[in-house]
Amino acid sequence: MSALQEFKTITDAEDYFDFFDLEYDERLVYVKRFHIMKKYGEMIQKADGHDLGSDEKLLDYYKFALISVYKNFENGYSPSAAEIWDTFGKPSACSTCSTSSSCNDIEEVSNGVHSCTSQTNLSFN
């Protein structure tokens, strides 16, 4: 099996780092796994359809892309709520006030739930 074929069988974030023999913070990868893999996938897709000359150069690009994405997260990059919502698509309806899918009064995103500013605030004193 060629190195490129082996690369294409990898599915776990840690295995990508091991494949390229890169050091990484296991805790950071554990916490940011989804976001790292999403950004890394986007970088890999950019190489699709481009002739980089050889499998070795393509793998060098993949390695550079992984290092670049990882370093961004290591240096404190955190995706915005808009990026997270874009990942999952737009919510089908406001989960707090059950309005239509056109609810644009989203105030906050927390654990996959947003609150609508048109919803009356409740207080439990």
Rank of each mutant, 00 (worst) to 15 (best):
N75L: 09
F73V: 03
S110H: 09
D86C: 04
R33C: 07
Q119W: 01
L122M: 11
D12F: 10
E26P: 03
T117S: 15
P91K: 13
A3H: 09
S118R: 15
N104M: 12
L28G: 03
D18T: 10
P91F: 06
L59S: 03
N75E: 12
I10M: 05
M37K: 02
D21W: 00
L52H: 07
D51W: 01
Y61I: 04
Q119A: 11
Q45V: 04
K38I: 09
I106V: 14
S98L: 11
P91H: 07
R27K: 14
T99C: 14
P91T: 06
C116V: 04
M37H: 02
Y70Q: 05
N75F: 07
S123P: 06
S92Q: 12
K8Q: 14
N125M: 13
F7Y: 12
K32A: 11
N104I: 09
V29N: 02
N72W: 08
H114P: 10
T87F: 14
L52V: 07
E108Y: 08
K8E: 13
N75M: 04
A13P: 02
L59C: 05
Y24C: 00
K57V: 01
I84W: 01
S102W: 01
G41W: 05
N104A: 14
S92D: 13
D60M: 09
K63C: 03
E83D: 10
K71R: 15
S92M: 04
S118L: 12
S98Y: 07
E83L: 09
H35W: 14
N104S: 15
K46G: 06
K38W: 04
S100V: 08
G89Y: 07
A93H: 15
S54L: 00
I67H: 00
D25N: 13
E108R: 13
P91C: 05
G49S: 00
E14F: 08
A13F: 05
S123H: 13
D51R: 00
A82Q: 10
M37Y: 00
D55H: 06
S100T: 11
K90I: 01
D60K: 12
Y30M: 14
A65D: 03
K38E: 04
V109F: 13
A82F: 08
T11K: 14
D86W: 03
Y62W: 06
Y62Q: 02
S95V: 11
G89R: 05
L4M: 05
D12T: 01
L66G: 01
C97T: 00
K32Q: 11
L52P: 00
P79S: 03
S92F: 09
E42F: 04
K57I: 07
D21Y: 00
S54W: 00
L66H: 01
D86Q: 14
E74Y: 08
V69M: 05
A65F: 01
V69K: 06
D48A: 13
F17G: 09
L66C: 05
F20W: 06
D51N: 11
S100H: 06
A47Y: 06
L4Q: 05
Y16V: 02
E14I: 05
I106P: 08
